[in-house]
Design a protein around this nucleic acid. Structure first.
Lengths: 193, 193
DNA sequence: TTCGCAAGTCAATAGCTGTTGATTTAAATT
DNA sequence: AATTTAAATCAACAGCTATTGACTTGCGAA
């Protein structure tokens, strides 16, 4: 019987995972440029050198963080164009403990580090391939790309405003459900011209 | 007669202005963290030390750049809630040489550097005081704050998508005027629930 | 002309960053 | 038990950053 109370040591896959998890949390709160490898290593209780060793470098680590989180993708879940507005509105509601909340985290990580030459390039590819592509396809019809951009713009704008600019009164309606309903209406408007 | 072809030297207000202009252009293209004082000094053809001398430091320089650009403010121009959608749609059109284009630059500068502890704090204050405040007041009515946030979110989202994520097909409709009309419709939707 | 003060220059500082090499330690294999 | 192999540690590196102080230059006033 292997004890599960003792701390596992000399386990490369465990430390790799610990680094990845710590990096995720750090990149969620700070930008690529403002996260140091020493911060991540400290959180993961791991030597700094191991990061470059296991991941090849900061850039590769970031790539792994975002591409791990990319799937299950935000826009792979909704099945039809009709359920899109309600899905996106629910996505923004961000009830604590909600399953969807962790889907939103990839968004925040992307927004935080989008300005930063190295991280930006990675993020841009991800947005085009894994987000805008599927979303455009799902919407379809006339000007599907434009409408996909509109939806994504709203989502990103709310993310920037709420998480980065720290504007908290976006949910400041008495009834949070009402707020969600209004945003659902906005998404519907974007889809129907 | 003072020659205007000779380069003015030993002119403190001119070099201050040169630094400010160079800083504006740099912060427009790169984030606070990725712009070095040496870059700015190089563009302004000025010694690096003069920046800290004249502005007190990088942070103060950035504050001066954004607060100079803040007025004339984006949202001080439209007079009534009714003309807001058309105004915002025109703001996004970004026709080269347009007067409104330079109004949009403040937005880009803010979005670029929003994630960055020092610049972020400055920007957050600006958003609350100079943008969300006036806009909420202009909109008025029920849930004016929520609607102001919606409009700002759309504006920021489009800015992020277009300028930072470099998604260029936001204007890829055959007729750019048609694209503008659609966004105007989206803004109207945000105002009317 | 001379003096003084402001403008501009130069060099050096301390503090950070990611990355790498050599070294030690622990686990698994023979 | 001895040996090999991988994991973790440690220390140091070179490159960058903003900022500061001392120094030199030049213009304007006396």
């Amino acid at each position: 019987m292997e004890s599960n109370t003792t701390i596992k040591k000399r386990d490369s896959v465990a430390t790799r995972a610990a680094i990845l998890a710590a990096a995720h949390q750090r990149f969620l709160r700070e930008s690529y440029d403002n996260v140091g490898l020493r911060d991540i290593a400290g959180d993961a209780r791991v030597d700094v050198a191991l990061i470059s060793r296991y991941f090849g470098g900061k850039e590769s680590l970031f790539r792994e963080v975002v591409s791990n989180d990319a799937r299950p993708n935000v826009f792979r879940e909704p099945q039809s164009r009709a359920e899109l507005p309600a899905y996106l509105a629910r996505l923004m509601a961000e009830d604590e403990g909600d399953d969807l909340q962790e889907r939103m985290e990839m968004f925040i990580i992307m927004l935080r580090s989008a300005s930063s030459p190295k991280a930006g390039e990675i993020i841009r590819d991800l947005v085009h391939l894994d987000i805008l592509g599927p979303l455009t396809e799902l919407i379809g019809g006339d000007h599907g790309a434009l409408r996909a951009n509109m939806l994504l713009a709203i989502l990103m704008g709310v993310g920037v405003l709420r998480t980065i600019m720290m504007v908290d009164d976006i949910n400041d309606v008495a009834n949070p459900d009402e707020c969600m309903a209004r945003f659902q209406g906005l998404f519907e408007a974007a889809l129907s011209c």
